[in-house]
């Protein structure tokens, strides 16, 4: 069994009003040095497959076909093997 940890982020060119609102809230906490906040999604998927390479292929396809929309989002993921 493998665990895919998928990170979906808004593309750089896309404004992130949610991140901006959170940045304002953080700044109002008087936390110093906060300059930018971008909000994305984190998705975990358990995949049973023959090997890591195949799990990677499946995660890649899941991202491409459904989890991320290339018009506005980028994705990255890592795959780790779960103890049996």
């Amino acid at each position: 069994m493998y665990l895919a940890k998928i990170l979906i982020t808004l593309r750089k060119s896309i404004l992130d009003p949610q991140g901006k609102a959170v940045r304002h809230a953080l700044q109002s906490l008087k936390l110093s040095g906060i300059e930018e906040v971008r909000i994305g999604k984190f998705i975990e998927i358990k995949i049973s497959s023959k090997n890591k390479k195949e799990a990677e292929k499946i995660a890649e396809e899941a991202c491409k076909k459904l989890l991320a929309n290339p018009v506005m989002e980028n994705y990255t993921f890592s795959i780790e093997e779960l103890p049996a």
């Binding site: 896309i14 404004l15 009003p17 949610q18 609102a21 929309n69 018009v71 506005m72």
Partner: peptide
């Protein structure tokens, strides 16, 4: 694509 309204 349709993004979140700018005003949220």
């Amino acid at each position: 694509a349709l993004l979140r309204n700018k005003s949220l």
